[in-house]
């Protein structure tokens, strides 16, 4: 199989699953009053980012996933801040790339459970907090209002505190993802493209159809 095409399909399917979880599952969690942002980042985003990194071992892929997920998030049929969320998601992909830069091909550092838990905490915390900070800077700029640094500084302690829950969730999720990845599940080459494009199409059609019905 063409390696680039396979990677593109991987970016599309994992990015679409990420965007779907942000739009649909996130909105359901929000309605139940749960801390949806922390749960989505700590469970879903971390799973998709780490699993795709281990499966494809291709730096840059998670940045592409963030772009796909962020684009899908713009069409969230259940409202919310479309622009800020899309920017935060794209930033999360970029921040993951920076954190995991040195783990691109070598996962030996995460053989023991202490390091797996620690990387779960670090990754989930920094991805969540980093995305939050980036959107606080970029949203006013993209909106044309202008960025006021003092607005960010006074709110920084709350942003840093908000990363605690996703960090703690990540401590449990990352070791679990690593266990799943060790199962060495393989999909037949003949089924790879139908499966990846099928799942991606489902995510986009589900979100866009709800958006046309309720959001547009």
């Amino acid at each position: 199989m063409n390696k680039n095409m396979k990677l593109f399909a991987g970016i599309l399917v994992f990015g679409s699953l990420w965007g779907f979880s942000e739009c649909i599952i996130g909105s359901v969690l929000k309605d139940t009053g749960l801390p949806y942002g922390s749960i989505i980042t700590g469970v879903f985003v971390l799973t998709f980012l780490v699993l795709s990194r281990i499966m494809y071992r291709q730096p840059g892929m998670q940045l592409g996933m963030g772009v796909v997920a962020g684009t899908l998030r713009i069409f969230n049929p259940f409202g919310g801040c479309h622009l800020c969320s899309a920017l935060a998601i794209m930033a999360e992909g970029a921040i993951f790339e920076i954190i995991w830069y040195s783990f691109s091909f070598d996962f030996d550092n995460m053989k023991n459970i202490t390091n797996q838990v620690s990387m779960g905490v670090i990754t989930a915390y920094l991805v969540y907090v980093g995305g939050y900070i980036v959107t606080q800077i970029l949203t006013p700029i993209v909106s044309g209002v202008g960025f006021y640094v003092e607005n960010l500084i006074v709110f920084l302690p709350r942003i840093l505190a908000s990363g605690l829950l996703p960090g703690l969730i990540g401590a449990f999720v990352l070791p679990g993802v690593l266990q799943i990845s060790r199962l060495d599940l393989k999909i037949k080459d003949t089924l790879y493209y139908p499966a990846t494009f099928g799942v991606s199409a489902f995510c986009w059609i589900a979100v866009l159809s709800l958006w046309f019905m309720w959001g547009a």
């Binding site: 040195s102 550092n109 202490t114 390091n115 838990v117 620690s118 990387m119 905490v121 670090i122 915390y125 920094l126 302690p157 709350r158 840093l160 505190a161 990363g163 605690l164 960090g167 703690l168 401590a171």
Partner: peptide
């Protein structure tokens, strides 16, 4: 080594989160 620094960074991150939460609650 990098392997030994990972838990240290994780503890630092958790401490930053905890102290920020306490500060936010206080103010």
């Amino acid at each position: 080594g990098k392997e030994k620094l990972i838990p240290v960074f994780a503890i630092a991150v958790l401490l930053i989160g905890c102290f920020s939460a306490l500060y936010v609650n206080a103010i």
